[in-house]
Design a protein around this nucleic acid. Sequence first.
DNA 1: CGATATTGATAATTCGCATTCGGTTTTGTG
DNA 2: CACAAAACCGAATGCGAATTATCAATATCG
Lengths: 217, 217
Amino acid sequence: MKPHPHLHWVRPVQQARSQQTIERLLDAAETLIADKGFSDVTVAQIAARAGFSVGAVYSRFRDKQGLLHCLQDRFVDEAYLTTDAAFDPDRWEGASIEEIVSEMIVFLVEIHRERRGVLRELLGRTRYDASMVERRERLNAHISQRLSALLLVRAERIGHPDPEAAVSFGLRIVFGTLEQAILFNDTGAYGVPASDDKLAEELTRAFLGYLGVFERT
Amino acid sequence: MKPHPHLHWVRPVQQARSQQTIERLLDAAETLIADKGFSDVTVAQIAARAGFSVGAVYSRFRDKQGLLHCLQDRFVDEAYLTTDAAFDPDRWEGASIEEIVSEMIVFLVEIHRERRGVLRELLGRTRYDASMVERRERLNAHISQRLSALLLVRAERIGHPDPEAAVSFGLRIVFGTLEQAILFNDTGAYGVPASDDKLAEELTRAFLGYLGVFERT
DNA sequence: CGATATTGATAATTCGCATTCGGTTTTGTG
DNA sequence: CACAAAACCGAATGCGAATTATCAATATCG
């Protein structure tokens, strides 16, 4: 039996230029998808934007779906690196809970705004694809653990009866609010603060309020 | 010029049975869409599930899109009625903030679970349709106002510097968390409480914590 | 009871777009 | 510098699914 020419979603590269082609195609896909949504972008458009023909797409990726998977891969890999850097315990020596939470939320708000386009589509698509759901869960859990590691050593100031669960669910609240804002293009009307600063401020208040962090006396 | 046979999205009914046909088609669409998503359901499938042929669909609705619009209409109309009943000030004579918030959140959690299917798709689709975004915003604003009316008369116990904005954004947090849980099929892993009761409890804590509701002394 | 409009069934028709495939160019290797 | 192999091209293919056209059944009204 002849083996399938594709290893999973992407064909293994043999020449140096292939990797570059892949990147250019992914870049093109990212911008187009961010703008119009995955199913409203054609393979031909992606190829054209990247300066290739449809054939190139199919010589690199198994199919359209495979391209999306690779896009998520790229995004997730990057996200792991960024969060690991942001939540490095060494950076937060001697910081208070308020400082950590506040900074973290500013960071999350920024990420969500910067990568709004891809995020929107990846989030939207995620629903239909079990493997994507899983990867997303894993990433969220990872972030959650990193944050817990920072906050739980300061747990004596947390009023919530189960601090560990609280950090986890609190983060979920933050993600929920941010992702909702992204998905539905909330601009500031009806309860969503218009500026990112204000949004971060209110989310910080909510997170701390939920944890039940006591005022330092 | 011959006028288009369809007024907007749905053809006006002339015989009694038409209305019934519409309802049956919408019911069928609702279940199928909840399960597979709008774009993965074919007009033929909807018709078949309702016991009709494709022709019936097109003699009632302008096109596939029109069917979705009508589905949202039905859902939204119902939602207005339900919330108006739930937030009727007379029902809450003498109730405390804690009681109101707690009940409200239980109510919202229930709604979201019951109508999970449609909600998921309507939320997902909403992104691509400006008119849907607007209707959703209007409904949210309506709920927000109803809740504000109940809570702001008890504002002396709210610690947040801007109680009105706080109620609005607090509600947004609740919706965000719930809708996220729905969209991504969260089962209880990673920070989402597994049971509805627990979820409602934590959301209540978060809402009250965010508002800064003082313990009654 | 006819006459006519409305509704619904069935069978095309159309069309967009992913995918394929034979041919051409580019690359790296001996 | 040849000469496979890999990468790329882009017209042609094919399919899935929305839409439309035609016709039969059923309701409404004079």
